[in-house]
């Protein structure tokens, strides 16, 4: 109940950060954990439904000569398959469904966030961090599963003189350990910064007098276009980096 009051307190503010507030639509609890159905959950489920129905409906005809929807579905498939093949080679295709899910999920969440008044799930550090942590843990597990303790050689680059090792190995180790942080913060900060910026400029349109309103409106329109690019680019980058990390684990060379 204290939380409900807290949420109500948040909802009253209309600062640039109000758009990121989590609102509990259906309070739920499971084994003492709060698993309320929030606006964030709503958009996750929406993304899930949209992606599934689109991909399944688009492929319902299974035409040899694709129609419009089917060719969109196929080009998304080929796009991600291209990233996987380029970074991991043919054998990497066994991780393709996983990589594809990451890409399409983040892309859809980013794009849904671009709808005015909607909620951007990926603008929350906990969500992006969970995704990045999943990638990092999966990659590390695959690395150890495939190479055993030999996977630790990843931190000892070839061709480095041995007296540099005390310097290089900690750097490599830290850069490996920092991966989930940089991966998650990149996505989160991009989405949050972009949406905050849009909101700040949009609020200028309200506060400025008459004609001057045009400038923030024009800027917001232009910046919205850039944000669409960023929304796609960040999903792409997340996917490419996932593939690069996977490649480290699978092939063990830089």
């Amino acid at each position: 109940m204290a939380e409900a009051a807290d949420v109500a307190g948040h909802a009253e503010s209309h600062g640039p950060m109000a758009q990121f507030e989590i609102k509990r639509l259906v309070p739920l609890e499971l084994f003492g954990y709060d698993i309320s159905f929030t606006n964030s959950s709503l958009f996750m489920v929406l993304a899930l439904v949209l992606i599934s129905t689109f991909l399944i409906l688009a492929m319902s005809r299974r035409a040899l000569v694709p129609g419009r929807l089917q060719s969109i579905a196929e080009s998304v498939y080929e796009f991600v398959a291209g990233i996987v093949r380029e970074n991991l080679g043919k054998e990497g295709m066994r991780y393709f469904p996983w990589v594809f899910t990451i890409f399409i999920f983040i892309l859809t969440l980013n794009m849904l966030g671009m709808i005015p008044g909607s909620f951007t799930v990926t603008s929350h550090i906990i969500v992006t961090f969970a995704l990045a942590a999943m990638v990092w843990i999966t990659v590390t597990l695959i690395g150890f599963a495939r190479h055993g303790l030999g996977y630790l050689k990843l931190f000892v680059p070839e061709g480095v003189p041995f007296w540099l090792m005390p310097l290089i190995v900690p750097i490599e180790l830290v850069s490996y350990l920092i991966r989930p942080v940089s991966l998650s913060v990149r996505l989160f900060a991009n989405m949050m910064a972009g949406h905050t910026m849009l909101k700040v400029f949009a609020s200028f349109a309200v506060s400025l007098p008459f004609v001057a309103k045009a400038f923030p409106v024009l800027f917001t329109a232009a910046f919205t276009g850039l944000e669409f690019l960023v929304a796609f680019l960040q999903a792409f980058i997340f996917t490419v980096l996932t593939c690069i990390y996977l490649n480290d684990a699978v092939h063990m060379h830089h």
């Binding site: 939380e3 807290d6 989590i22 509990r24 739920l28 499971l30 954990y33 709060d34 698993i35 309320s36 159905f37 929030t38 964030s40 959950s41 996750m44 489920v45 993304a47 899930l48 992606i51 599934s52 991909l55 399944i56 469904p97 996983w98 594809f100 899910t101 399409i104 999920f105 799930v121 929350h124 906990i126 969500v127 969970a130 995704l131 999943m134």
Partner: peptide, 21 residues
Amino acid sequence: PDFAPQLFWLAVTFVLLYWIM
């Protein structure tokens, strides 16, 4: 306090999406 519901629903939707995909 908002972390737990987000993590739960992220897990549910992601696993479901992975399975469907």
